[in-house]
C-alpha cells in the first residue's frame, strides 16, 4: 500500500510525486494515448499544450486514473496504483474538469459536500480558510450564500478550485480551467492556484492543460506538447 499521507522527505533523491511510464490507451483501432511518460516533482508547474483533439484531456484523466489504461504504469511516489487505492490516490492527485460540475445548492453546501465521502470523513470544513482564499479573488463571506444556478462561469471555476483545495491534494490536474473565462476571472483563478501551490512548495505541483501560450508562459516552469496522443518535452 502506497503512503498517501506525506510525500517522502530525507537524504536520498525522492521519487517524483507522480510518474507515468509508457501509458497507452486505445479505443478499438483508434490510438488515444501512446508511450506517454512523464514525471511530476514537487514545485513543478507543467503546461501541456497541443491542438484540440490531440489527447490533452485524456492525458489528465489518465494521470488521475479516471480512465482504464491499456498498458503502462502509473506511479504515486514510486509505487504503482492499484484498484482499491484509486479513491485515495485521486484525493492526492486531483483532476479538475474544464466545466465544473457543482451540486445544486449554495456555495457553502457545494464546498461541504466532499466531506460526506468516506475518504474525507476525518477532515472538517474550514470556513475561515475558505474565506481567506475568497479574499484572494476579491470575494467576501457573502459569496458562500450564493446559489449554484446564479454563479458565472468564472465563479463556478473558483468554487470548484476551492472545493478541491480544501482537500489538500498534492497535484492539481487542471483541464483548461480558464478557457471560458474573461481576463479578470482568469487572473483570479491563476493567483488562487499559484497561492495554493506556494503554501507548501515541497509537496505540491500542478499540470495545466491550456491552449493559451501566453498563459503557459505565465504559469509554467516546464512545457510539454501533445500531438496525436504522443507527449513530448519542450514547446
Amino acid at each position: 500500500m502506497a503512503d498517501f499521507t506525506e510525500p517522502h522527505r530525507g537524504a536520498s533523491p525522492s521519487p517524483p510525486l507522480l510518474a507515468a511510464v509508457e501509458l497507452a490507451r486505445r479505443d478499438g483501432d483508434q490510438v488515444l494515448l501512446t508511450g506517454v511518460s512523464l514525471e511530476i516533482h514537487a514545485r513543478d508547474r507543467v503546461a501541456v499544450v497541443g491542438a484540440t483533439g490531440s489527447g490533452k484531456s485524456l492525458l489528465l484523466r489518465a494521470l488521475a486514473f479516471l480512465d482504464p489504461i491499456d498498458s503502462g504504469k502509473l506511479l504515486w511516489q514510486g509505487r504503482e496504483i492499484h484498484g482499491p487505492e484509486a479513491p485515495r490516490f485521486r484525493g492526492c492527485v486531483m483532476y479538475l474538469h474544464q466545466r465544473p460540475a457543482l451540486i445544486e445548492g449554495s456555495v457553502e453546501e457545494i464546498l461541504r459536500q466532499p466531506f460526506g465521502l468516506r475518504l474525507h470523513r476525518d477532515k472538517v470544513f474550514d470556513r475561515a480558510a475558505i474565506i481567506a482564499r475568497l479574499a484572494l479573488v476579491g470575494r467576501g463571506e457573502s459569496f458562500l450564500e450564493s446559489q449554484q444556478r446564479d454563479l458565472s462561469g468564472g465563479e463556478a471555476q473558483i468554487v470548484a478550485l476551492l472545493r478541491a483545495m480544501q482537500l489538500a491534494p498534492h497535484v492539481l490536474l487542471l483541464d483548461e480551467p480558464t478557457a471560458a473565462l474573461d481576463a479578470q476571472s482568469t487572473a483570479a483563478v491563476e493567483s488562487l492556484i499559484e497561492t495554493y501551490l506556494s503554501e507548501q512548495p515541497t509537496q505540491r505541483a500542478a499540470v495545466w492543460v491550456t491552449h493559451d501560450r501566453a498563459q503557459a508562459q505565465r504559469v509554467a516552469s516546464r512545457w510539454m506538447q501533445m500531438r496525436a496522443g504522443v507527449l513530448s518535452e519542450g514547446s
Binding site: 479513491p87 486531483m94 460540475a101 475518504l119 472545493r163
Partner: peptide
C-alpha cells in the same frame, strides 16, 4: 455523467 465523474475525481468510491 459530469457529476458522477467529478465525485470520482474528488475521491469518491465507485459506489459513492
Amino acid at each position: 455523467r459530469e457529476q458522477v465523474e467529478t465525485q470520482l475525481a474528488l475521491g469518491a468510491t465507485r459506489w459513492e
